[in-house]
């Protein structure tokens, strides 16, 4: 290693580049890929890999346990325990931890380290940038909201406990993908909205966790103490995507309201979170 005073400029010449240049799509893909690498701690020191690895592994442990049981126990006993919709409850902690860690890492860090300014001085616009970042965060979240269930479906199918027939398999596959999309979309926008409001990663992470806890406490206290309508439980933000997923899998809903109310509330919250992100980034100064 040389010090600054020992640094020497070597003349390797300078070549002009006359080849073709790729467009915005390639630039967005590069930001997407770079963000996923950053979120997972790839090409970074080991300490940056610990949280993502642990939280992702946590989401696969129940699936591994269920498949282990399926291999050991007779199939007629195991068949009753197959519950794809119930798996979303088992991954809720992993999903929350991963969102709280990765969301601020992908957005707040860019602003704090000046990367956002460098991106805006490139062919990317704010819309391109946010789309690439949202895609990256959703992709990382798929590792806990989608992949474990696909792994479970594959494993059960392999040991002869999968859905009967091709069409039932496709229906279940569609529900798993849709469930992963609903949960990932909600957590992606929640993570991005929190990260938009502060440059401090710790504050954003705490904000994500506190928002879910506070909304749950508030909704349940109002429901229990004030004895108001079940619709007040729609204010429990953490339950909104799970309720939609339970309805998707046609199991018993979590919140006892008509589907249009539950899905409307989820859509409204998603729109509000997206507006916070767009509003925050529209008024963000770049060259300062």
């Amino acid at each position: 290693m040389t010090t600054q005073t020992e640094a020497e400029i070597f003349d390797r010449g300078y070549r002009r580049y006359d080849g073709e240049r790729s467009g915005v799509g390639t630039a967005m893909r590069s930001v997407w890929l770079n963000s996923i690498q950053r979120a997972l701690g790839l090409r970074r020191k080991f300490r940056f890999k610990i949280v993502p690895i642990v939280t992702i592994l946590l989401a696969y442990i129940p699936a591994l346990a269920f498949l282990g049981i399926a291999v050991i126990l007779p199939s007629e006993l195991v068949g009753e325990t197959v519950d794809y919709a119930g798996y979303y409850g088992l991954i809720s902690i992993s999903t929350l931890l991963l969102t709280a860690f990765v969301g601020p890492e992908l957005l707040s860090t860019d602003r704090r380290t000046g990367m956002f300014g460098l991106y805006m001085a490139s062919p990317l616009t704010r819309t391109h940038y946010l789309t690439a970042k949202a895609s990256a965060l959703a992709t990382v979240l798929f590792l806990v909201t989608l992949m474990p269930l696909l792994f479970l479906l594959l494993g059960y199918t392999f040991v002869g406990l999968g859905p009967e027939g091709f069409s039932n398999t496709m229906i279940l596959l569609g529900r798993i993908i849709a469930g992963g999309l609903i949960l990932s979309s909600f957590m992606t926008l929640l993570g991005m909205a929190a990260a938009t409001l502060t440059n401090r990663q710790a504050f954003a992470s705490a904000g994500i966790v506190m928002t879910l806890i506070a909304s749950s406490v508030l909704a349940n206290v109002m429901f229990e103490v004030a004895e108001v309508d079940d619709a007040v439980l729609l204010a429990d933000l953490g339950n909104l995507p799970n309720d939609a997923i339970q309805r998707l899998f046609k199991t018993s809903e979590i919140i006892d309201v008509p589907s249009w109310q539950s899905l409307g509330a989820l859509g409204g919250v998603l729109a509000l979170l997206a507006l916070i992100v767009i509003w925050g980034y529209q008024r963000m100064e770049v060259t300062k």
């Binding site: 390639t26 590069s30 090409r43 020191k45 704090r112 000046g114 990367m115 990317l124």
Partner: peptide, 23 residues
């Protein structure tokens, strides 16, 4: 003077070159 502190200089410069359209 802020730049991402934990990224190697070469990785950072290459990433910015790619988003400017270089293969």
């Amino acid at each position: 003077h802020n730049l991402p502190p934990d990224i190697a200089a070469h990785d950072l410069v290459r990433h910015v070159a790619v988003i400017h359209g270089l293969p």
